[in-house]
Computed example of a mutant assay.
Amino acid sequence: MTNDSTSPLDAESDCEALSRRLGEACLALGVRLTTAESCTGGGVASAITAIAGSSAYFETGYVTYANAAKQRLLGVSRATLEAHGAVSEETVREMVIGACRDSGAELGVAVSGVAGPAGGSPDKPVGTVWFAWGNQHHQRVQRHHLPGDRRRVRELAVAVALSGLIESLAKSRPGRAPLQ
């Protein structure tokens, strides 16, 4: 499922509070997490691991800023990158699949976007960010148009990624993998 959205979070979103809620949900469900990040540069993994005890549920994070890294570390296909670009539904879907496959985590998030100030296009203006939450078997994908400068786009992208992980876990129950 793809959902196109504007920023669902107001300017005062608190990544620390989101990370705490995420950790509590992971512990309650026995779920391990992974991240595959491009435009956020490790910001999602940093927010998760800022919480004491996160080693109980955070497996690993991949910062795959370059396309070659997406291919080498996550198994994103060259054909996908050539046909759709790094900032696309297809790429984030392959990123989250690869991150879960490589890490063994039950749930992951992938983020790729145009944080700016340059790099935008008419099809993918600055602030366009694609997210995929899921695992090797099921993914939920959304495109967001996040407002602000580079710093703000990246901050909001981290908050959206964390919120999506929490939402994915809210649909889970003990003994059942997320997003089944």
Rank of each mutant, 00 (worst) to 15 (best):
V96I: 10
D149I: 09
H138W: 12
L27P: 02
N135R: 04
G42I: 03
G108K: 09
L29D: 10
R143I: 09
G23L: 04
E90R: 15
N3D: 13
E59N: 12
V129I: 03
A36W: 12
V153W: 11
P174Q: 08
E59Y: 02
L27N: 15
Y62P: 03
C26R: 03
A45P: 05
L29V: 03
M95N: 08
G75V: 03
E16C: 12
A177M: 11
R93Y: 05
L81Q: 11
R151K: 09
K171I: 08
R21F: 06
P147K: 00
H144M: 02
S163M: 10
Q180I: 10
Q71K: 15
S88P: 11
V114Q: 05
G175V: 03
A68H: 10
S55K: 06
T2G: 00
L9K: 08
D4Y: 14
E90V: 03
E167H: 12
S7P: 00
A161R: 09
S168K: 10
L73M: 15
G108Y: 11
Q136P: 03
T60V: 15
A118R: 08
R154V: 15
A157F: 05
T34C: 14
R20G: 01
A118K: 06
Q71F: 05
R151S: 15
G30E: 09
E37F: 08
A99P: 01
A79S: 14
S7C: 15
P178S: 11
P8S: 12
M1F: 02
A50L: 02
R151T: 13
A132L: 09
S172E: 02
Q180V: 14
R154H: 00
